[in-house]
Structures are given as structure tokens and as C-alpha cells.
Computed example of a mutant assay.
Amino acid sequence: MKKALICGVSGQDGSYLADFLLKKGYTVFGGSRDAQMTSSKNLKLLGIQQDVQLVSISINDFRSVLQTLLKVKPDEVYNLAGQSSVGLSFDQPVETLESISVGTLNLLEAIRFTNLPIRFYNAGSSECFGDTGSLAADETTPFRPRSPYGVAKAAAFWQVANYREAYQLYASTGILFNHESPLRPERFVTQKIVAAACRIANGSKEILSLGNIDIARDWGWAPDYVEAMWLMLQQNNADDYVIATGKTHKLSEFIRIVFNTLNLDWHNYVRTDSSFFRPTDIVEGHANPSKAKHQLGWEARFKMEDVGRLMVENRFEIEKNIAQSIL
């Protein structure tokens, strides 16, 4: 039975990955700064809280990382930890850089120090590419990040590449484009839209204020993407992969899908507000995930249209489960 350590297990990707690995027969350890105090909300919603063994680990503290690896002796380590919001990174650039780049470096160095045969996955981001215009970014596209978050993820990417080449570590980065689910917190624009639309459908008279709704992104379904993470660590050789649907849509299209799912005309409820615009932003995000398809045999099952609908449908189901658990 394989053992996996997921750093950042309480987040969207960490929770779905834990569920995926448990179904594969893994023993799953979930890392968080304080295992006794961590929020297990997402694990509870997926019904796997009792199956994940929580361990305390601060990836910004090398000693903590080293002690955890020696204690758990995992076969695979998934680094999904760190500040995860692009928007918040403009307000917290130091925290963003330290939690992502320093944390990644500590994990890599601790794996090298222990000399354990650990396979390492690092969560990269399409934010590393910056604005590529209509060019579909692949694994050879240069990085030109336009946010503190993108800068931090780019630094972590090159750390992984360096340890793979210099020390022969099995270390891979998944350069993931936007991927959503009902487990997203509302600071992410997709969940903000879904939450507001559901409230409006239930009778709320609110107006949803958003920033630039003409931005275009490649949106996928998060449970699809955690399978790609796992597949990367099952290959004979470590490598980096772009993970995306290959289809790009404007945010206004996502808004339309969400409101249409609820039989609402979004034009009646949505306004743009320049105060939500970012200092620098990516106008379009296009991806070429052909390497993942050919080498991993992975392809996104759900497209943006499915994502918007599924987020609405699953939100109602989650709210129902929460209400029943309270009763």
C-alpha cells in the first residue's frame, strides 16, 4: 500500500486529491500547519475526514519538513500548499513568495537530505506565463508573470527543474490552468458568481459587482485535474506538464452559463466595478495540453459549460448536506 503526503490537504485540490488517492488504495497523510486546529470542512463535505491522517507540518520550516518526511516516509509528496489567490497576492506579496517558493525549496531539500525514494509533485500555475495573447501556451512557452503569485510560482517551477537535473530527484510540476469546483472559497471569482446567482435565485435582491468580465481563461473541473497530478508521478521519468481543457472563454460567458442554469438573465443582476480591477492582469489565457494527452493519456472530461452547471448543482447539494448535518 503506497503512502502519500499532501501538503495543503484542506484546500480544493488537496481534498479532491485525497479522495482520489484513497480510492486508489493509498494511505493518505494530510499536512497542515496545525493538524489539531486545521479546517477539515472540505474533507467532511467529501465524506473522507476520518480516512485522512492529519499531520502538522510547516513547509516554511525546514526542520518541520524534515521531521515529517522521516516520520511518514511517503512514497509520494504533493505540494499544494501556499497562498493560493492571485488577487490577494497583490496585497500580500511577501507572504505569497515565502509560502510558495521557500516552502517548495524546503520540501525539495528535505527530500534530497533524507535520500528517500520519494516522488514529488509541485503545483505550478498558468499565471507563470503572463499574457500570451492568442498564443496557446505549452511547456516551452517563456514565463512572463504579471502578479506576485505568478512570480512565486515561476520561482518554484525552476527550483523543481533544478533539483530534478542537478540532484536527479523525481520531481514534476503541473502547470495547471484555472480549475474550479464547489469547494472553491468565495474570494475566487467563479465561486463568487455562483454563490450570488444561487442567492438571487432564492429571492435575494442583490446586484453582483465584478471587475473586468472581458478577461478570458481556460476553465476546467478540479476533480479532473487531480488525476493528472497522480498520473505525473506514475511515469518512468519526471517531467513538467500543462494541464488544461484547451478551450478559452470570456468570464462573461461563464456568468451567462451560471445564471442560465438558474433560469436567470445575468444582465439584470451583474455590474462591473473598476475598484475590483487588478494592478496588472492577464487579458487572455490559452493552453495547449497536447503533451499531457500524448504522454499521460490525460484529457479534460469537463469543459467550461459543464463547470458552470456543475458548480451550481453541487452547491445546492452541499448546502443540503450541511443543513442535514446541523440537524
Results as ranks from 00 to 15, higher is better:
residue 201 A to T: 08
residue 210 L to Y: 01
residue 203 G to H: 01
residue 295 Q to C: 05
residue 294 H to W: 11
residue 244 A to L: 10
residue 202 N to K: 09
residue 261 T to F: 08
residue 286 H to D: 06
residue 234 Q to E: 04
residue 265 D to T: 09
residue 209 S to H: 15
residue 216 A to N: 04
residue 218 D to M: 04
residue 244 A to V: 06
residue 216 A to G: 15
residue 245 T to P: 03
residue 202 N to A: 12
residue 290 S to H: 15
residue 226 V to N: 03
residue 203 G to R: 00
residue 219 W to M: 15
residue 254 F to S: 02
residue 228 A to G: 02
residue 276 F to P: 05
residue 277 F to V: 10
residue 293 K to N: 08
residue 258 V to Y: 08
residue 202 N to C: 13
residue 219 W to F: 15
residue 234 Q to H: 05
residue 211 G to P: 08
residue 256 R to H: 07
residue 282 I to L: 01
residue 242 V to E: 11
residue 263 N to Q: 12
residue 212 N to H: 06
residue 202 N to P: 12
residue 292 A to E: 02
residue 280 T to S: 06
residue 207 I to L: 13
residue 224 D to V: 05
residue 255 I to R: 10
residue 223 P to H: 02
residue 268 N to I: 09
residue 259 F to I: 12
residue 246 G to K: 12
residue 198 C to G: 10
residue 256 R to K: 14
residue 214 D to K: 11
residue 264 L to H: 03
residue 273 D to A: 03
residue 227 E to F: 04
residue 292 A to K: 05
residue 257 I to G: 02
residue 272 T to S: 10
residue 258 V to S: 15
residue 234 Q to W: 03
residue 270 V to F: 00
residue 219 W to Q: 15
residue 231 L to K: 01
residue 262 L to I: 08
residue 281 D to L: 08
residue 256 R to Y: 15
residue 242 V to P: 06
residue 207 I to M: 14
residue 266 W to R: 08
residue 230 W to F: 11
residue 257 I to Y: 02
residue 239 D to F: 02
residue 221 W to V: 00
residue 224 D to T: 02
residue 293 K to L: 09
residue 213 I to A: 05
residue 286 H to W: 04
residue 243 I to E: 05
residue 240 D to V: 13
residue 267 H to R: 09
residue 263 N to A: 14
residue 246 G to V: 07
residue 247 K to H: 13
residue 230 W to E: 06
residue 205 K to S: 15
residue 223 P to W: 00
residue 241 Y to G: 05
residue 206 E to D: 10
residue 275 S to M: 03
residue 291 K to E: 01
residue 243 I to Y: 01
residue 268 N to H: 15
residue 219 W to V: 14
residue 260 N to L: 09
residue 221 W to Y: 02
residue 256 R to S: 13
residue 213 I to L: 01
residue 225 Y to G: 04
